[in-house]
Amino acid sequence: MDGLNYSGTKVQFAVSMMIVLYFVLAFYPKYFGGGQEIIPFSLYNLYSMVPGDYNKMDLLVKDDCGVEKYLFYKNKDLNSIERKYYLRKLNDIRNIYNSRKHIDLDVDSEILRDIEGEVYLVKMTGDYIKTLDEGTFDTEIITRIK
């Protein structure tokens, strides 16, 4: 290749800086940004710990015929966007409830607007394997929402 002298070119400098920038932006949210990742730089701690017992919030919906269904758990009617959205909202609700021991949900909020029937906020606790294998977990009704 014509014996080219490639040391110290602008591209080499730019690539070096990009590598540094990549890792700065990837680490920043973990230590300074409250854990909210800056896309497209993902966090590295996914799956770093084996999960223990879980403690989740969900909405238990009873329709007019008395059929019970959860908003998130085993709800095959949700598309991928709805699953992500409800998961996020339910995690936010759990975090608020855990810190204040009280929660007020607006019945006109996005999460409740389209749900018909009686709606209860429930706390689900259990072991992921038993929940998957046997469908067993403990529930505690926190409050009736509507």
Partner: peptide, 9 residues
């Protein structure tokens, strides 16, 4: 546990 957690979600 990882597998069943992912499945749950």
């Amino acid at each position: 546990l990882h597998s069943s957690k992912t499945s749950y979600f």
